[in-house]
């Protein structure tokens, strides 16, 4: 038995419908790809900034003295001193007679660290206590603001640049004191 084929009109109509479907699907895929790319980029910047904020929070908790911020006024740096764990401050073994003139943090046992934004990046500097050094901690940070809250707590906010938009991440560091 001879099979009936498709007419030219049927084939053209099918091709037309198929091309419309293909165009719609490719448009949807392109949009979703663009959105995912944007979201991934933003995720990375924000994630990096969140990790940075976490590091700053740990650093503040580790500090023995806060140099900046020193008041409720907003500062653009974070500067603090912390004990160098590599310097032995306590006599070991414990002597039978207590030493005179023992101090809690002898000179050279504290390291001063400063954070500031330079050319769109957060920079960490060793100011004193160890050889002066500086390195870029996180790229894409446009601003750092710190201020002292009641009870010696600290508020830190950093601004992340993401495709011409700035996003502010803020944290309050409560020191266990």
């Amino acid at each position: 038995m001879r099979r009936r084929g498709l007419s030219l009109v049927e084939v053209l109509a099918t091709l037309f419908l198929f091309s419309i479907c293909l165009a719609v699907i490719s448009q949807l895929l392109a949009n979703s790809q663009q959105a995912m790319k944007h979201s991934r980029g933003q995720d990375r910047s924000v994630q990096a900034a969140l990790v940075t904020l976490n590091d700053l929070r740990d650093e503040v908790k580790e500090a023995t003295t806060l140099v900046v911020p020193a008041s409720a006024a907003v500062a653009t740096t974070l500067e603090l001193s912390k004990a160098n764990p590599n310097i032995a401050r306590f006599p070991n073994p414990l002597p039978a007679v207590a030493p005179t003139g023992w101090t809690l943090f002898p000179s050279g046992s504290l390291v001063t660290v400063r954070y500031k934004v330079v050319a769109g990046a957060l920079v960490r500097e060793i100011v004193s206590g160890l050889p002066v050094a500086s390195y870029t901690m996180t790229e894409g940070i446009s601003d750092l603001k710190t201020r002292l809250l009641a009870g010696g707590n600290v508020e830190i906010s950093i601004e992340v640049m993401e495709q011409q938009k700035n996003q502010t991440l803020l944290t309050s560091v409560y020191r266990l004191r």
Binding site: T64, A83, P85, R175
Partner: peptide
């Protein structure tokens, strides 16, 4: 009776 610091092992 205050904590002098809270160190989490961050290096210099």
């Amino acid at each position: 009776f205050k904590l002098l610091y809270l160190r989490s092992g961050q290096s210099f």
